[in-house]
Design a binder for these strands. Structure first.
Lengths: 146, 146
DNA sequence: TCAAAAGTGTTAACAATACACCCATGT
DNA sequence: ACATGGGTGTATTGTTAACACTTTTGA
């Protein structure tokens, strides 16, 4: 994601942090303590505890990076299971961007881009019309939402 | 610019390279040998000697990064001296992007963006009309060329 | 029959592109 | 007078954004 190397970012010595971020399906998320790291846990990004030094800045930059990646890549699809509805996909985009998107324009762009294919299947989800299920396929070009 | 950390990128051990790039005025460019680095020199990016391991890839990525930075930042102005003509600026953009740009559209965008101001001065340069000199001023928003 | 999400096209505003001529100068 | 780069405006095209109603289902 970014390498933090400002000479004065650590008070004692020169510390360089290479930060990465990964998208992990919720089912596979588990927080295991490792040697030398006694208490680790997953936290909601809006409810983080005190963070050492510039670590809050690192988190912040990762969020921003995710937002911009959403605009010039198909990273949003990485949040989807194998089959998904366009409503679910739109929900991911809206959550990350932090603003509502127009349903018609969103579907238009995604479908026109041609990185999804209709599986022919549907999902019944509640007391309303069932949604079509789509599958992610390799992108041809770059997808811009917004 | 980017941190290269693939575990197998060096045959002997785990080597991590944090690559940076900088824009330096030609007058201040000098290649000094340092301890342990006997022969260093500046090379034209299109005429590089053999490069160790993935170093060619690193150079390549830096070039690409420069191209994309040109599109969402005002980095192009960093190549300019304190006063410059729009023709010179366009030349920088054309060189980096590797394609000619329309003179009128280019000037329109740069001027509309409002990150330059007319110094009132001119430069006589050859047997043709003198060019206005501009000065770079802080950008308001993001400048997109192309 | 009602509530709730799914699905669908058109129009207007704006941004990007293509394009050709006159200007000021030095030789 | 001519060669050279400087300077300017408009028309077209393409892209993006705004907007409202019908459909299908379960309760």
């Amino acid at each position: 994601m970014y390498t933090f190397g400002r000479p004065d970012r650590h008070p004692k010595s020169r510390v360089i942090t290479v930060a990465y971020f990964a998208l992990i399906p919720w089912e596979r998320v588990c927080a295991e303590s490792a040697e030398g790291v006694p208490h680790i846990a997953w936290r909601h990004v809006d409810a983080l505890p005190y963070l050492y030094l510039d670590h809050a800045e690192i988190i912040d930059q990762a969020r921003q990076r995710l937002v911009s990646k959403l605009q010039y890549s198909t990273i949003g699809f990485e949040f989807m299971p194998e089959q998904f509805t366009l409503g679910e996909l739109q929900c991911v985009y809206e959550t990350i961007l932090g603003e509502p998107l127009d349903k018609r324009n969103f579907r238009k762009k995604v479908l026109a881009f041609g990185c999804v294919e209709d599986t022919g299947e549907q999902r019944r989800n509640g007391s309303h019309r069932p949604a079509r299920l789509y599958r992610y396929t390799a992108p041809g070009e770059v997808l811009y939402i917004k």
